[in-house]
Each structure stands twice: as C-alpha cells, then as structure tokens.
C-alpha cells in the first residue's frame, strides 16, 4: 500500500489516478495513522515552497515524514514535493526544507552566461539523461522524455544524489535519491510511458520491502 500525503497542496488527483492505472493500492489521506500502515509514501506538490512547508508543519506531516524517512520507509517527492526534500529554497525568501537531501532550491536565472534570455518556467518535454542507470527507479527506462513544469530547480550538494538529469541552460536534477528517499522534478504521472515506468519502479521497490539501508 502506498500512502499519498494530503497536506492541502498540489494535484493529488493525477497522482492517485496514475496509481490506479498501475493497479497499485493506495490511500490518499492526511491521517498519520493510516499513512503509518503504508509501506511507501508519495509527497506530491504544486505551488509555492513556503506555503508547502507551512502546511506540512501545521498538519503534523513534517515530523511524520521525517520520522518515517529515518525508519527507512521509501519516500518519493514529486515536483515541489522533491524540492521539499532538500535543505532550503530561496522561493519567497529563504525557507527551510525537510533536509533529507543536501542541497538548495534556486530560481532559474532566465538569462544564460552569454546574456541571452531563456524562458521560465521550464515547461514542456525534456530528455531524461540517466546519471545512474543502475538505480532501481530507472529500470526499463529507455531513451525517453518527461514533462517538466517548474521555475525553481535543485542544486544538489552531492553529485551521487543525482540519478538522472535534464539540460535546460544548466543541468537540472530530474530524478534524485539517496537510500530510501527519492524525488522526481518532473511529473511522472504526466510523462507518458517513461513517467509511468518510473512510477511503477518506485511502487515495485516499495512492494519488495524497500531498499537495504
């Protein structure tokens, strides 16, 4: 059973429908008791980083997620949910994140090193470049494109936390992970077959009892 964390942010419907298409049982709730019964957690999220951290704190989900992640329960953050896994974000002033992965979240500059403007948000289908093809999340992922919509991106402190990336003027971490904590910057539930494969891989990892810590 996968628990989708409902903390008042984001499009929970598309993630839950994607799990239905994969035939994976899930609960969508803000109730820690129900979520504690699950073998894996998904932290979705669309919206602003400070609002999301505030909601996580107010709903008690912040402490819950931190304790479950520490126990080794597999966790997948999607889009803003991935950014929340890191130390901090400069969205709307510096805001502290969950700190499960080292690094910070910054806004795309919108101007490249040669002074040319580029568009923000990074919106659309971009190529997924595997950095760690052996990661359980990338199994059976052939050459593929995934759908991004975001104005902020992660600067990971540890190179080895980047499982796959995409190029958008700079290297954008697209799939990140360390031990049982994973994140996808793009929307796997909106990324066709490639996205669904990555989502399925996470669910399989959960059903196999997670990763050895």
């Amino acid at each position: 059973m996968i628990g989708i964390i409902d903390y008042g942010m984001g499009n929970l419907f598309s993630v839950s429908k994607a799990l239905e298409r994969l035939d994976v049982p899930y609960v969508l709730t803000s109730d820690p008791e129900q979520l504690a019964q699950c073998e894996g957690l998904i932290l979705p999220g669309v919206g602003a980083f400070p609002d999301a951290m505030k909601s996580l704190a107010e709903t008690g989900m912040k402490d819950f997620v931190l304790s479950k992640a520490a126990e080794g329960m597999p966790l997948l953050g999607i889009c803003l949910g991935m950014q929340l896994l890191f130390d901090e974000s400069d969205e709307g002033g510096m805001t502290e994140g969950l700190g499960l992965l080292p690094g910070s979240v910054v806004r795309f500059k919108g101007i490249d090193s040669e002074g040319n403007r580029f568009k923000v948000p990074h919106m659309g289908w971009n190529h997924l470049d595997p950095q760690q093809p052996s990661s359980p999340l990338l199994q059976n992922v052939e050459d593929g494109y995934v759908y991004f919509v975001h104005s902020y991106y992660v600067q990971a402190k540890q190179r080895e936390d980047i499982i796959a990336s995409a190029q958008y003027e700079t290297e954008v971490p697209a799939v990140v992970g360390r031990a049982n904590v994973f994140g996808a910057q793009f929307h796997p539930e909106k990324s066709g077959d490639t996205g669904m494969t990555i989502l399925r891989n996470f669910c399989e990892l959960v059903s196999k009892g997670g990763v050895e810590l």
Binding site: F13, A18, R21, D193
Partner: peptide, 11 residues
Amino acid sequence: VREVAGTLAIP
C-alpha cells in the same frame, strides 16, 4: 475532465 485525467498520462 475527471475522466480524461484518469485515462491519460499527458498534460
């Protein structure tokens, strides 16, 4: 909208 979202994996 609900039905489309439940069927398609594209935005």
